[in-house]
Design a protein around this nucleic acid. Structure first.
Lengths: 331, 331
DNA sequence: CTGTTAGCGCATTCAC
DNA sequence: GTGAATGCGCTAACAG
């Protein structure tokens, strides 16, 4: 009865003994095979099989200072818009042997600093943020930590480090311009209460040139909140011609409510969404919306982080992926 | 020019020196405050502030054998059904100081073993699987690793370790029973090609008592695939009375296509979905569906893992959360 | 309540 | 090609 604890897991030490080589040779055989003779590699492989060895990346990372993880901060996991980004990020990282640590920030800025601390304490090799970091202390802390950071889905004059996104101000402005070009003057906004949507609203208003009826719903917005939003907007003005919505889910709700009230789209009411969700093209009527390459954002963010991890200097640390209005039947 | 590398990050050693205490006292002041005098704690806190210290959990975990992480394996991040589960899991873990490692398995079983290896190499304190692990080698490997495992969204006679889910066979059977009770005999199925949906189909057929027209679409299913599915089903039988769909997204597509073809629901065509997505209650017509407590699944899974981490024995390692049919306007 | 000692499992120097 | 020593940053075990 020497030890009292769990069944000691097999370590590289055991593999080395089994293979009749030194610890470091076993290590190299697995991680740097070109430094070791083929015969040795084969014996180490066999020993791994025999012992059922699974490396401990925590131990390796401690010495090499690379955890082979990337953290992703999202405001909420329920935001459908980010799903393609998360997916692309996961896939690109996985292909490079990296794993994703998912953290939910909530829309509460106070939590930002605390969460960031627990994230940094895992020593991720990179951090991807959906949106911008708001709290200045967080931004400063992250800069000092020296961890590569990519802010996504948004651009700023002064990113913490790198950024892949687009201008929400321009999106709002573009939708307003589109509405004006169609001759709609009685326009309105249904928007979630997140920061990016608020910036789009700003852009919209500045191009329209005056304030418009607005309903704000809690993020993440949904079909249900879209229905309520239309009801409220119609109370403010029964003769609205077109509504700019901050998400396709919201727009879908507006369209459902419109149909339920006997309003036809686009004849009685034109609707524009945001995000080009998978259902947008296939609704009835199909939804005009703002298309953003969410998958591309995740993919580029991964590439930027991975490049930094390899010590490369990134030529273009701020990438504008742009957007485009996809005109469909709802307008 | 003593050191050539990066700006050495501050360690607990630095904090201890700054506070004028030993290394271990500083460690305890931060992680086990009740073993240390208040005065000392205060000095250590001040030293942490002064130095900007952020702990290194990788190092701590190496010694304590607790990584404070839990891995989640999902077939695909795009499966909307799992979102509430992921959310609940993240929140419960976060509250306990644990972080989630997200891994995407794909629907390819060959990848399962390889991915599991990279997951285990991070030494998570627990693993949550959306669905069951299919590959027997993976199951065996996981058992030997001695890591707490919770399989979710499904139950089996022989779980790897723990499980939180429900019987998909019973779901299919219940929907069939409901259809029969309404007198519908010309029924059909629109289903994604994932395993759980296939089991529901089995249950449906066994209760109906004979084969029925079926369209299988690739997972994850969508509104678009629902539209196509209805088109194909109507080619097989123009007089279908009711369709059982494997997701609410699919059901929504079927309803859109039905409306586009001038078919009214439920008069001409009754539809049942699965999952009770947030939009199901608010569509027009509102969607009859099978409600499952996805949030509860994530929450319970987290509790099971955390209990195991605390060394508690779990009284009920297999939890059936059940389901219920929510009857709405589409039937 | 506090400190000393000894590692956790591996990868980075250096040697040969 | 291979190996021996050393320590990454922290905590468990024992002393005081």
């Amino acid at each position: 009865m020497t030890d009292s604890t769990a069944p000691k897991s097999v370590t590289l030490h055991d593999v080395a003994r089994e293979a009749g080589v030194s610890l470091i040779t076993a290590s190299r055989a697995l991680s740097k095979p070109n430094l070791v003779s083929d015969a040795t590699i084969e014996r180490v492989r066999a020993a791994v099989e025999a012992t059922g060895y699974i490396p401990n990346l925590l131990a390796g990372g401690l010495k090499s200072r690379r955890s082979m993880t990337v953290a992703l901060l999202v405001p909420s996991i329920s935001v459908a818009q980010f799903v393609p980004t998360i997916k692309a990020l996961t896939e690109a990282l996985d292909a490079a042997g990296y794993q994703l640590i998912l953290a939910q920030m909530g829309y509460d800025h106070a939590r930002e600093a605390a969460l960031l601390n627990t994230i940094i304490s895992r020593r991720p090799d990179g951090i991807v943020v959906a949106g911008l970091l708001r709290s200045p202390t967080s931004r400063e802390q992250l800069r000092r930590a020296g961890i590569p950071v990519v802010e996504t889905w948004e651009l700023s004059d002064r990113p913490v480090d790198m950024a892949v996104g687009f201008s929400h101000l321009k999106v709002g402005s573009a939708v307003a311009g589109y509405f004006l070009s169609r001759g709609w003057r009685r326009v309105a906004i249904a928007t979630a209460d997140d920061h990016r949507a608020a910036v789009r609203r700003e852009g919209f208003l500045s191009t329209i040139g005056h304030d418009v009826p607005t309903v704000v719903v809690p993020a993440p917005s949904s079909l249900a909140s879209g229905r309520r939003a239309l009801a409220q907007l119609l109370e403010q003005d029964r003769r609205i011609e077109a509504i700019c919505c901050s998400s396709d889910q919201l727009a879908q709700g507006v369209l459902v409510e419109a149909a339920a009230r006997g309003l036809r789209s686009p004849e009685d009411l034109a609707i524009c969404g945001f995000g080009d969700a998978d259902f947008a093209a296939h609704m009835e009527p199909s939804l005009t919306t703002v298309q953003v390459d969410g998958h591309g954002i995740g993919d580029r963010a991964a590439r930027l982080i991975l490049a930094r991890c390899r010590g490369e200097t990134v030529p273009e640390p701020v990438i504008d992926v742009g957007f485009r209005i996809v005109e469909r039947a709802s307008t």
